[in-house]
Design a binder for these strands. Structure first.
Lengths: 351, 351
DNA sequence: ACATTGCTTGAAACCGGTTTCTTGATATGG
DNA sequence: CCATATCAAGAAACCGGTTTCAAGCAATGT
């Protein structure tokens, strides 16, 4: 292997070079860089001019070596291709940027082996804090080694998770699924809907479970008897799964609901496709509401009424928790992100 | 500010600590870490056991300081929420991981000011190479400062772009849009389609321009007269834009084409929605083919026949070009990624 | 005029690795 | 059996910053 290669030969600019040219010591250059006050106006100007001239920015690795801070936050994501996570990642990046931090994203594709590997890679890269999104943490954790691994890392640096993990030093930032589902039901109910179906989701995903439970309890509270046929507990959160479920529902011959709750936007799109094929109009014939409020909800036809998770706030909370803990601040071990239903065109009032 | 905070107090494990416990010198520990051969089996075992015991991984910043390598590749992305870029990013991450590199993603949201800022942030973070996806580079570059900025960076480290930029030391990896469009036309033609429409795209995007040109030249070569009404040159690559365009086409009263080419998967979904609303079946009544082959193409109903860009190969090319150049290898200044039409269920043969 | 205080400044240590140089020990060869 | 090549392993320099420490110098107080 060509050791170094051509890129090593370029003359590197360092504080030594600057110090030399300015006729001061490296320490003084460093003082200028760190905004230290004790530098005479004359030398400061000299150094600042050279910094500008060479477009010099100090070597982050050398800096990090003394400060033990890389200014990088590691983020473990199940799959960035999932619009939900993509949206969240963008907000995290924004929030991190505002605090002068960079993000190192890592997709683990729901593969535990991969997650472990990426995890240690990032730890080796000296990330200052770790954010773990979605995935196994949300589910029932059967693998003890997993929890132990994460908890051990939470001993070394701030770890913020979007799921649940007891026994360690992790910080949780969770979505208010309970209130979210209640809002949806409230909205549909107040718009006159009495026959409401729910489609999609897997029964080992905690957030989905919560939605089902609140759906039922809402019906219960309003004196409506829960009909098991009204909930389709299968689906992999894909467009196709919504399409299939809706088709079956329509072809079962049972009475058409006035409103349908989709587990996410993609499932809602599938449901809409199926309804269209059966010559049903949305929202005139059937109202549809979904969760996640991804870009799909904004650009679909009709535009979807969808549950927004306040991604900006979510991103802020994740980043600020991580950095707050890093700085030794007192941060609650669990935070809840409020939800807000974004009303668009896929629901209609029943008179 | 609480200098350091609680995280500084944890006893850090370093090669010195390991060396001490193993009764060897730090240099020996380093030799074990770098797979250097000149270590006796006895000491190597001792050190390896301690490394395992403490789950030790060497400080990447200290390492990087001597090697001038951060093992991080910076990637500038217009918007990761775009499924096309998300898919590409995932492949880049995989390819980078295979070479033991990490990625630092940065979304610039098509904002030049932001792009500049993120750029210097990443350079300051000592990225080893830079990959710039999409955006301004693809378009007509009116801002000279932009090109100059990128080219100056290409003097400091390998820069790989997916667009065009002359005058500097950038490496290009482009999609074979020409062949891609030809394949689509060939496919439709060989399946008996003679009346083919094209929907979507903006006229200042180079890749879109190329598609339009090849579409026309194909028709020309096959003796079909080009009808300007058959190309809808408006649309922002969204679902809604496809929906609107298709609606207009259907309501214009003009003869329905037998096949429609959508500029991307999302536009195709909109087109399909519109067709469904007009009680047209896909592919029985109209065939639809699109570009990008995102996850939407796989999970939509019907599943879309879509142009695949060989994302894995694209990701490989981007990463390997960056790292190849970094290592001083001879790499062509421009590479073309082949395209391949993935046949699914949205097109039908006309008899 | 002399002691004290406050600022500016450079020298040097340090962060945690890698690498060169050197030494000492062992193996090879004539 | 001695000269030479080979290899293990430690000491020390180095990467490029930050920070402590001490020195030098001017201003202030008595």
């Amino acid at each position: 292997m060509a050791k170094g290669g051509i890129w090593m030969d370029r003359e590197k600019i360092s504080i030594y070079r600057i110090a030399n040219e300015a006729g001061v010591s490296p320490a003084t250059v460093s003082r200028v860089l760190t905004q230290n006050a004790n530098v005479s106006e004359e030398k400061r100007k000299k150094v600042e001019n050279l910094i500008l001239k060479y477009n010099f920015s100090p070597n982050a690795m050398a800096r990090g070596l003394t400060s033990s801070r890389s200014k990088i936050i590691g983020v473990l994501i199940p799959d960035i291709r999932n619009p939900f996570y993509a949206g969240l990642a963008v907000e995290c990046e924004r929030a991190a940027g505002e605090r002068d931090y960079s993000l190192m994203l890592s997709n683990y594709m729901n593969d535990m082996k991969m997650e472990e590997q990426r995890l240690y890679k990032m730890v080796g890269q000296q990330i200052d804090a770790l954010i773990i999104m979605g995935g196994r943490v949300d589910e029932l954790i059967t693998d003890n080694a997993y929890a132990e691994r994460i908890n051990r890392i939470s001993d070394l640096m701030p770890v913020v998770i979007t799921g649940k993990l007891e026994g360690g030093n992790c910080y949780q930032v969770n979505l208010d699924e309970i209130n979210g589902m209640d809002q949806v039901m409230e909205y549909l109910y107040s718009n006159g809907h009495r026959h409401i179906c729910m489609i999609g989701g897997k029964n080992d995903v905690e957030s989905t479970q919560t939605k089902w439970i609140r759906y039922r309890s809402f019906l219960c509270r309003h004196g409506t008897r829960f009909c098991p046929y009204d909930v389709v507990e299968t689906g992999d959160y894909s467009l196709e799964s919504g399409y299939e479920a809706m088709n079956q529902m329509l072809e079962s011959g049972r009475k058409l609901p006035s409103a349908i709750i989709a587990i996410n936007d993609l499932t809602a799109l599938g449901i809409i496709q199926s309804l269209r094929e059966h010559s049903l109009r949305i929202p005139e014939d059937v109202s549809v509401v979904s969760f996640d409020n991804t870009f799909l909800a904004k650009t679909s036809v009709p535009r979807l009424t969808s549950m927004d998770y306040g991604y900006d706030q979510y991103g802020n909370a994740l980043i600020e928790t991580a950095l707050g803990v890093l700085e030794g601040m007192e941060i609650p071990k669990r935070q809840i992100i409020p939800t807000e239903l974004v009303i668009r065109d896929s629901c209609q009032k029943i008179t």
